[in-house]
Design a protein around this nucleic acid. Structure first.
Lengths: 193, 193
DNA sequence: ACGTCACTAGAACGAACGCTCTATCCAGTA
DNA sequence: TACTGGATAGAGCGTTCGTTCTAGTGACGT
């Protein structure tokens, strides 16, 4: 029935979960809502994810991790100058934000933040995502000649500011925070080159 | 029965809501949980907040707004140099974070982020909070001699970075993001003085 | 042709949700 | 003393939640 080229049920479920939790968080997303959005039945959801909502959330956060990492890696590879590259990231994020009418913030943060305290597995998945992004930014900075210790610290601020600015932009429905973040992160990075 | 000096029921309810939503978000916090934590009954909750959970959340976010604004205003008034003052803020946040064993992040963000799309009143309350904080930081920068346009933009980045670093610190259970944010925000501000 | 098994399908369960409702309590006033 | 009304108290409403369970489908190997 299912051709090789079309998206399988399992993947549809993960993507629907990621998309929904990106907008409404872990607690705000229901399993029936997920199965409806993924065009799958509850039976299929539990077939692929016997661990239920928790297992599904961990998988969805992993998906969000990969998405953001891909955006990051893509832009950082395309733009040589690290300061310019980070600024380009903020522009990319602003575009996505505007395109979704300020619906889609960071898929990891929104999904994990409120439930991280009660669900260690969710927190761990989110922590892995942050570590992943930090490593990507850090690598770019080191490759640009910044010493490892400085790059490590700077990468923390880059990730924090990108996340914070995206969140602020979402709440205020304005790209101003992301625009400012781009300007200032570029200036900050340049001061270390 | 109730003496003037002790905390009234209404205030206890608001504070319990703020505290609980700070940790578990809007959807993750139940009204019975709130009434239990506030040592009030459901009847009292609906007596003071006929609008139910939504009205309660808006009030709680306002409370979180005031809390963070007070911290900000306190530190910015105490430390003259704006770069040093913002760095001191990150230290204060890191202390609070560690003291709560990484339970208590930003009361506004955690409460509002996941539900902001479905509940405009919640989003509006959170937006007012961000605008408030932005104004406070902006005022400090202008008072330090930075021109208005630059200060406005810079205040956006300061708020975004503080929020993002607090969130990252919470998820990763480390003060490293906040420490880095302090160092780099100070450096950034200094570059405009 | 038949059996196997991954997958689909959705009814049904107990628990928890937000909220409504009636009953009661008690300080203040007449 | 009797009345009033803000505040307290919690049982119970209908709904939705995550999860479990059984039944059914259909592609594939033998």
């Amino acid at each position: 029935m299912k051709a090789k080229h079309e998206v399988g049920t399992r993947e549809r479920i993960v993507q629907a979960t990621s998309r929904l939790m990106q907008r409404h968080g872990y607690e705000g997303t229901g399993l029936k809502e997920i199965s409806r959005e993924a065009q799958a039945t509850l039976g299929s959801v539990y077939h692929f994810f016997p661990g239920g909502k928790l297992e599904l959330a961990v998988e969805a956060i992993g998906e969000g991790d990969r998405e953001f990492a891909e955006l990051l890696r893509g832009v950082l590879a395309r733009v040589d100058d690290p300061a310019e590259a980070i600024a380009a990231c903020t522009r990319e994020l602003a575009d996505g934000m505007r395109a979704s009418d300020w619906q889609d913030g960071c898929p990891v943060t929104t999904a994990a933040l409120a439930s991280s305290r009660r669900l260690p597995e969710v927190r761990d998945a989110a922590e892995r995502a942050f570590a992943n992004w930090h490593g990507i930014v850090r690598g770019k900075l080191v490759a640009s000649g910044i010493d490892e210790e400085t790059a490590d610290e700077l990468a923390h601020t880059v990730v924090s500011t990108l996340e914070g600015a995206e969140m602020t932009a979402q709440i205020t429905r304005s790209t101003a925070p992301l625009d400012a973040a781009g300007t200032h992160l570029a200036r900050l990075i340049r001061s270390y080159l």
